[in-house]
Deep mutational scan, measured.
Amino acid sequence: PEDLERKVRELQKNGVSPEQIEKILRRDGVDEREVQELVKKVS
């Protein structure tokens, strides 16, 4: 979803590592495939 992507970009802009971003997304209940997609987009 659009807002998730925005969140991921925000986190990355704040210097959060892709690994941390993955953890955060998983903790928020984002589905694994979605997590991978989002992280791939920003890394």
Rank of each mutant, 00 (worst) to 15 (best):
R27I: 08
K7Y: 15
D31S: 14
V35R: 02
K13L: 10
R27C: 13
K23T: 11
E19G: 07
R9D: 04
D31V: 04
E2V: 11
R33F: 08
D31Q: 06
G15N: 04
I24L: 07
Q36S: 07
G29A: 02
E37K: 11
E37T: 05
R33S: 11
K23F: 12
Q12W: 15
V35A: 12
E32T: 04
L38C: 05
K23M: 14
R26E: 04
L38I: 13
N14K: 13
D31I: 04
E19A: 10
V35N: 01
V39R: 02
R26G: 04
I21Q: 00
E34T: 15
K13P: 00
I21Y: 00
I21L: 04
I24D: 02
N14A: 14
V30R: 03
P18Q: 10
L11A: 02
R26D: 02
L11W: 11
Q20K: 05
L11V: 00
E22L: 14
S43E: 09
Q12T: 12
R9M: 09
V35K: 01
V8D: 00
L11K: 00
R9P: 00
L11H: 01
L11P: 00
K41T: 06
S17V: 04
L11Q: 01
D3C: 14
E22A: 14
K40P: 02
V8E: 01
P18Y: 13
G15P: 00
D28E: 13
P1Y: 15
K13G: 05
R26L: 14
L25V: 01
E37M: 09
L38V: 10
S43W: 15
R6G: 08
E22Y: 12
R26S: 06
V35H: 01
V42S: 05
K40I: 07
E5S: 05
L25N: 00
R27T: 09
K7P: 00
V16P: 00
E19N: 05
V30S: 02
P1H: 13
Q12I: 15
G15T: 00
E10V: 06
R26Y: 05
G29T: 01
E37Q: 08
R6A: 13
V42F: 13
V42Q: 05
L38K: 01
I21M: 04
L38Q: 03
D3E: 11
E5V: 11
L38S: 02
D31H: 06
S43T: 14
D28Q: 12
E5N: 05
R6L: 11
K13N: 08
E32S: 06
E19F: 05
E32P: 10
G15L: 02
Q20A: 09
S17H: 07
